[in-house]
Simulated assay, not measured.
Amino acid sequence: MKKLLIILLLTFSMTGNAECIFVELEPFPPVINDDGSGILPDMLAAIEAKTDLSFQVTIATYARAKKDLHDGKVKLIGLTPKGNESKSFYQSAIELDWFFQATVDIYAQTPQYLNEENLTTNSIGTLTGNADFMAMVTNISREKFIEVSSLEQLARLIVKNRIKAAIFERASMMSTINRLKFSNIHYNKLITIPAGLAVNNTRAGQTLKKQLDKALLSLNTEAYLTPLNNFNQLANSGIVTTISDKKKR
């Protein structure tokens, strides 16, 4: 009985000492789904199994995630455009070493609007908190962008001709278009950028960064990210169709 009590106390001590990391993630399917599932949450679960860290994940807009990280309300956010955020962002945040390459496309129902020279003020949609760096990495005037709160809204605005084009990451945008069963939406690749995670730029944040960098190195992250290959290996331009349709051709 005494031995059992010691085991129970040790177990309680180990679980009780787990550090809870509050996380905010922007929807980025299939990496991060609206319901909190996805590739990245699975990776965080694997890290929980290997370390004394635990993660409490909330889905948020990128703008909210950045603000809450700056205010110290959360300890980890994603996905960030690694190395491509604003100077003010890096005053309070530091990115992890880990990242993956994300393909950014422009989408439109009318092919002429795949050329940004044919687009005017407030005619390109992207997600809340993304317009500034999207304008920077694509070299498109910031005044041409508007921000909306969700990928579904972004896709619907294209179909309803409320915006002429949208710019966002390929797998996220195409999977949303496929889920909504929208057709005749054209795309053109603009750029590939690294996507990653960020923590607070404090002593505690830097310690957390070291823990997470080490944990991510121990994971086979390429295996987790395999579903993205189906999207990234598509032609640089074309009409959005389902992955299964592409395989049949």
Results as ranks from 00 to 15, higher is better:
residue 227 P to K: 00
residue 15 T to K: 06
residue 122 N to Q: 13
residue 111 P to H: 03
residue 249 R to I: 14
residue 27 P to Q: 15
residue 41 P to G: 14
residue 102 A to T: 00
residue 232 N to A: 08
residue 95 E to V: 04
residue 132 D to I: 12
residue 94 I to S: 09
residue 77 I to W: 01
residue 167 I to G: 00
residue 231 F to A: 04
residue 95 E to G: 02
residue 202 T to K: 03
residue 168 F to A: 02
residue 248 K to P: 05
residue 92 S to F: 15
residue 87 K to W: 07
residue 3 K to N: 15
residue 112 Q to M: 08
residue 112 Q to G: 03
residue 153 Q to A: 11
residue 25 L to S: 00
residue 71 D to P: 09
residue 67 K to F: 11
residue 34 D to Y: 11
residue 174 M to R: 07
residue 140 I to G: 05
residue 144 K to E: 12
residue 146 I to Y: 05
residue 152 E to A: 07
residue 150 S to C: 03
residue 10 L to T: 07
residue 47 I to E: 01
residue 85 E to R: 12
residue 191 I to N: 02
residue 146 I to R: 05
residue 237 S to C: 12
residue 226 T to M: 13
residue 161 N to Y: 12
residue 67 K to H: 07
residue 22 F to L: 15
residue 138 T to A: 08
residue 135 A to S: 04
residue 165 A to F: 05
residue 42 D to V: 10
residue 164 K to L: 11
residue 82 K to P: 09
residue 151 L to G: 10
residue 94 I to N: 02
residue 136 M to F: 15
residue 71 D to A: 15
residue 156 R to S: 05
residue 122 N to K: 09
residue 128 T to D: 12
residue 52 D to L: 03
residue 125 G to Q: 07
residue 199 V to F: 07
residue 200 N to R: 00
residue 20 C to I: 15
residue 239 I to R: 04
residue 46 A to I: 11
residue 16 G to Y: 11
residue 32 I to L: 14
residue 13 S to E: 10
residue 190 L to D: 01
residue 129 G to A: 12
residue 55 F to M: 13
residue 240 V to T: 08
residue 129 G to W: 03
residue 60 A to W: 07
residue 102 A to N: 11
residue 112 Q to E: 12
residue 115 N to L: 10
residue 87 K to S: 13
residue 162 R to K: 06
residue 141 S to G: 09
residue 211 Q to W: 10
residue 43 M to G: 06
residue 231 F to T: 08
residue 119 L to I: 05
residue 35 D to C: 03
residue 64 R to D: 14
residue 100 F to R: 10
residue 203 R to S: 15
residue 113 Y to M: 04
residue 147 E to Q: 02
residue 45 A to D: 14
residue 212 L to D: 00
residue 120 T to E: 04
residue 127 L to G: 01
residue 9 L to S: 10
residue 192 T to C: 00
residue 142 R to M: 14
residue 198 A to H: 11
residue 122 N to H: 04
residue 217 L to T: 04
residue 217 L to M: 09
residue 125 G to R: 06
residue 188 N to I: 10
residue 233 Q to F: 13
residue 95 E to W: 12
residue 172 S to G: 00
residue 34 D to Q: 14
residue 248 K to W: 10
residue 97 D to G: 06
residue 173 M to N: 00
residue 205 G to Y: 05
residue 133 F to C: 00
residue 24 E to H: 14
residue 181 K to H: 14
residue 156 R to W: 01
residue 189 K to A: 01
residue 27 P to G: 06
residue 74 V to A: 08
residue 200 N to E: 08
residue 86 S to W: 03
residue 45 A to L: 09
residue 170 R to M: 10
residue 115 N to P: 06
residue 139 N to T: 06
residue 140 I to R: 00
residue 51 T to W: 08
residue 89 F to P: 04
residue 31 V to W: 14
residue 215 A to M: 02
residue 26 E to Y: 06
residue 209 K to L: 00
residue 150 S to G: 05
residue 68 D to Q: 11
residue 60 A to Y: 12
residue 87 K to R: 08
residue 68 D to M: 13
